[in-house]
């Protein structure tokens, strides 16, 4: 007798679904890895151009470290609360999932607001991306990260509504897992922006 017959068709179906889900999660992981390569090319551009200030201000003159530390803390805490949401997801507690993702959303929004305020300030004092090679590469690198954050926030808002309406079904759970990976990844990228652009910039490397 074929051994597969021992398993009910319902259990088999569940296995198929789970296998499909883990394949999708793996595909998403590959996307994250290619996004890392995208950021690496922007980091390389920045590293090459960061001294080409064309008579304009350098990073050490422009950036305020306490301000950037506040941004970093907001993003780091949001990554942590996203982790708490993942734990709640595992425990299938809908209220906690929404609560922690809402906290993550607020912290992420705070980060984005600080970043946009900094960009606005730079543009207003005429140190926008047109000023020098250094500022072009700075705006491209940090702006691309900010764009990812914006997309993450929109995704998070959509997912909170979906969970409110549809609960924690297989598909919502999978999407939330992908969102959590995405959000942690953005925090990892920020470590390097914080270190290479801001800390090493202040040291005038």
């Amino acid at each position: 007798m074929e051994p597969t017959l021992a398993v009910s068709s319902k259990a088999l179906r569940r296995q198929e679904v789970e296998e499909g889900q883990s394949k999708i999660l793996f595909g998403f992981w590959i996307y994250i890895m290619t996004d890392c390569v995208l950021f690496a090319s922007l980091f390389a551009t920045y590293a090459v151009l960061h001294n080409n200030t064309f008579g304009g201000p350098s990073g050490a003159q422009l950036f305020s470290l306490p301000y950037v530390l506040a941004e970093t803390m907001l993003l780091l805490t949001s990554s942590f609360s996203c982790g708490l949401a993942t734990i709640a997801l595992q425990n299938k507690s809908k209220a906690k999932v929404i609560g922690y993702f809402f906290l993550t959303f607020l912290l992420g929004l705070g980060f984005l607001a600080l970043e946009l305020r900094e960009f606005r300030h730079l543009v207003l004092i005429h140190d926008s991306w047109t000023r020098s090679g250094f500022l072009s590469s700075y705006f491209t690198l940090v702006g691309t990260h900010g764009l990812h954050i914006t997309i993450g926030l929109i995704w998070m808002a959509v997912m909170m509504i979906r969970v409110l309406k549809g609960g924690l079904g297989t598909y919502n759970v999978r999407r939330l897992k992908m969102l959590a990976i995405f959000w942690h990844f953005l925090d990892v990228i920020w470590i390097f922006i914080f270190t290479i652009v801001y800390l090493l910039g202040a040291l005038r490397v």
């Binding site: 597969t4 021992a6 296995q15 883990s22 780091l76 942590f80 734990i87």
Partner: peptide
Amino acid sequence: AQPLVIKHDETKLKLSSYIIGFGLS
């Protein structure tokens, strides 16, 4: 021909893992 046993791609996540990670960061 054995029925596939799909293991979850992650082991059970622990709260302590996130707390340690957050503290170290």
